[in-house]
C-alpha cells in the first residue's frame, strides 16, 4: 500500500510537471494546450535522434530538446491559438485548431517513426532504491526531484521576478496590463513557450523509463489536465498537490481494482471535481458580472 502511495506521488509529480504548462498558458491566455501530447512525443523522438551524438552529453541533449520544445510551444500559440481565440468564452476555435494540429503532428510522427517502442538509452539512472518494504525505481525518484525543482523555480519566478510580475498582471486583467505598457502578446507567447521546458524534460525522462513511442503523450495529457483541474488552473505550485492526488488515486485503485478501473478512477475523480468544485482546490470562485 505504502509502495503504491509513494509511486503515485512520484508519478503525480510528472503529471504536475506537464500540468504547470497548462496552468501557465491558462493564466495568461485563458486557453489550454490540447496539443501538448504532440510536444511530448516530439521531444522524446528528438531526444532519440540526438542519442548517437555522445559528445553532446546528457544535459546538452536535454537542453537542445528543451530549447526546441520551447520554440514549438511558441509556434503552437502563434499559429494555433492566437488567431482563433476571441474574447467570447463560446469561441472554441482554438480547441479545434490545437486538436487539428495535434492530429497532423501525431500523424507525421507515426508515419515517419513507426508505431514501435524505441529504447532511449540515456538520461536514466538505473537501479532501485529500497527503504524497508518499499522499492522505488531511481528514475522515478529523479523525475520527482526534477519536477518539484522546475515547478518550484517557475512558481518563485512568477512571484519574485519582473517578468513574473508582468505575467501575473496579464493573468489578472489583460486589458489593463496592456494599458500599463506591458507587451501582453509577448507574455502570452512566453507562457506557452516556458511551460514547454518542463513538458519536454518530463517527456525525455519518462521516455527513458518506458521507451520512446508516438503513444507516449496522450495518457500524460489527460492526467496533467486532471492534475490542474483538481488543484486549480490558477495556481502554478498547486499542481503538485493536484498531481499527487491524481497519481495516488490512480495507483491505489489500479492496485486494488485492476488496471481498467484504475485508469477510469482518476478521470471520474476529475469529472466530480469539475461538477462539485469547478474552480479546484486552490481556485477562487469567479464572480459573474453582468
Amino acid at each position: 500500500m505504502l509502495q503504491q502511495i509513494l509511486t503515485g506521488l512520484l508519478i503525480g509529480s510528472l503529471y504536475a510537471l506537464i500540468a504547470q504548462s497548462a496552468v501557465l498558458a491558462y493564466m495568461t491566455t485563458r486557453t489550454i494546450n490540447f496539443a501538448v501530447a504532440s510536444v511530448m512525443s516530439a521531444s522524446a523522438f528528438l531526444a532519440l535522434a540526438l542519442a548517437p551524438f555522445d559528445w553532446l552529453t546528457t544535459p546538452g541533449r536535454i537542453a537542445i530538446v528543451a530549447i526546441l520544445a520551447t520554440a514549438f510551444g511558441a509556434v503552437l500559440f502563434r499559429v494555433g491559438v492566437a488567431p482563433f481565440s476571441g474574447s467570447s468564452e463560446h469561441d472554441i476555435r482554438w480547441i479545434l485548431s490545437l486538436v487539428a494540429l495535434g492530429l497532423v503532428f501525431d500523424d507525421l510522427i507515426l508515419n515517419s517513426q513507426g508505431g514501435q517502442v524505441h529504447r532511449l538509452g540515456y538520461a536514466t539512472i538505473p537501479g532501485t532504491l529500497t527503504i524497508g518494504d518499499v522499492t522505488l525505481s531511481n528514475q522515478l525518484i529523479l523525475i520527482g526531484v526534477v519536477s518539484v525543482s522546475i515547478i518550484g523555480i517557475i512558481e518563485l519566478a512568477s512571484r519574485y521576478t519582473g517578468i513574473g510580475l508582468r505575467m501575473r498582471a496579464v493573468a489578472e486583467d489583460r486589458g489593463t496590463a496592456e494599458l500599463m505598457g506591458i507587451r501582453t502578446n509577448r507574455i502570452r507567447i512566453g507562457s506557452y513557450a516556458v511551460g514547454m521546458i518542463g513538458v519536454s524534460i518530463g517527456a525525455v525522462l519518462w521516455s527513458a523509463q518506458v521507451g520512446v513511442s508516438p503513444a507516449l503523450g496522450s495518457p500524460l495529457l489527460l492526467a496533467s489536465f486532471g492534475a490542474a483541474i483538481i488543484s486549480s488552473f490558477t495556481s502554478i505550485g498547486g499542481v503538485l498537490v493536484g498531481g499527487a492526488i491524481f497519481g495516488v488515486v490512480t495507483q491505489l485503485s489500479s492496485y486494488i481494482f485492476g488496471s481498467a478501473i484504475g485508469q477510469v478512477s482518476g478521470l471520474i475523480l476529475v469529472i466530480l471535481v469539475l461538477v462539485l468544485r469547478p474552480q479546484g482546490i486552490f481556485g477562487k470562485r469567479a464572480l459573474e458580472k453582468v
Partner: peptide, 28 residues
C-alpha cells in the same frame, strides 16, 4: 451536472468521459 460549466471545462468533461468509455470497452 455540468450546467455551471462553460466552454473549455465542458470540453474537458466530455473528453474525459469519452476516454472512460474507451477504456471500459477496450479493457473489460
Amino acid at each position: 451536472a455540468t450546467g455551471r460549466l462553460r466552454g473549455p471545462q465542458l470540453v474537458i468533461v466530455t473528453l474525459f468521459g469519452a476516454t472512460i468509455v474507451y477504456v471500459l470497452i477496450s479493457q473489460l
